[in-house]
């Protein structure tokens, strides 16, 4: 059996903070690791109250936590994911990470002393590295998810994400008996525009149109590029009167918009189709095809015009 000295020697060489407190929250023991990383002297720490030595500790929370360990005699944990750190300690990567203090995983262990008194041992592990890389990973995943939703050219929702939104809004509208309107519009004679100004000119028109329409919409409206020069907008909680109002404003805004490309001024118009959810629609695709038919009517009626789905006029 190793002697006590060896155990203390090992404890002092561990790359883990070890802190032991009694049931009065006085510090009974700490190891060299903590002495170095907290930059305090043992004489000022051992024998003193933990909350005086480390005023940064959340006192009420920690007391409840430690009470549980004393009472239930079971381990307890605290992860950096919920609390970045408990103790304000220095860490070894101050330059290559942006953590000001050491990120920590803490374990609370119940200890029964030979004299029958109870102690709690707090183990403090440096997880600044883990925290740093996990945070970077989460950020990257978020960016990836974002770019998966966005159309690269126009920076509005791409078709896939837009359709997923519509599917959700459709079932929500069904469940809560809410209104739901759909607007689809297509830029008129876009091919001609591409032929005249080249694809760069056409791209600029798509970008500028998406920008100007975005500025017209409410927060809850969902705007996406449906394909080529066709755009689509989901208007939750909106009836046909409201949808027609938005559609007309879209048509006017596009027709008044002048886009400067190289030395030319490009003007463009749009044909707009509008439909709202009706009893007969069983799937969200029904709503799309009704709106699409209205858009087709707008094209057939000479373009630069708003048309409503036929079955809504007849009803």
């Amino acid at each position: 059996m190793y002697s006590n000295d060896i155990c203390i020697d090992i404890t002092n060489k561990l790359n883990t903070g070890v802190l032991i407190i009694d049931n009065q929250y006085n510090i009974v023991f700490w190891n060299r690791y903590l002495e170095i990383h907290s930059n305090r002297k043992t004489d000022d720490v051992v024998g003193n109250n933990i909350f005086q030595v480390f005023p940064e500790l959340p006192q009420k929370w920690l007391k409840r936590k430690v009470e549980g360990v004393f009472q239930l005699k079971s381990q307890s944990f605290c992860s950096w994911e919920q609390r970045h750190h408990l103790f304000e300690l220095q860490h070894t990567r101050p330059i290559s990470t942006n953590s000001h203090f050491m990120a920590q995983n803490c374990t609370f262990l119940p200890l029964e002393r030979k004299d029958g008194s109870d102690n709690v041992c707090i183990l403090i592990e440096d997880v600044t590295d883990v925290c740093h890389y996990q945070t970077m990973l989460n950020k990257t995943l978020e960016e990836l998810a974002q770019s998966n939703r966005i159309d690269g050219l126009t920076q509005i929702f791409n078709r896939k994400h837009w359709e997923e939104c519509l599917e959700k809004e459709f079932s929500r509208a069904r469940r809560y008996q809410h209104g739901l309107a759909l607007i689809m519009f297509d830029l008129d004679h876009f091919k001609l525009l591409n032929d005249t100004y080249g694809h760069l000119g056409g791209d600029l028109v798509l970008i500028e149109t998406a920008k100007i329409i975005s500025s017209l919409l409410r927060l809850g409206d969902l705007f996406g590029r449906y394909g080529g020069e066709e755009f689509a907008i989901i208007l939750p909680n909106t009836d046909i009167v409201g949808a027609l109002d938005v559609a007309e404003r879209i048509r006017v805004a596009i027709s008044k918009n002048v886009i400067n490309f190289q030395k030319s001024e490009i003007k463009v118009t749009a044909s707009v189709g509008v439909a709202v959810i009706s009893e007969e629609d069983t799937r969200y695709e029904d709503l799309i095809s009704n709106t699409d038919l209205a858009l087709y009517d707008a094209k057939a009626s000479g373009r630069n015009i708003v048309c409503v789905a036929k079955h809504l006029i007849e009803a």
Binding site: G68, L72, S74, Q75, S76, F77, Q82
Partner: peptide, 10 residues
């Protein structure tokens, strides 16, 4: 997490 840990370990 806290409650789970208490239930499991107890």
């Amino acid at each position: 997490i806290d409650l789970s840990s208490i239930l499991t370990t107890t």
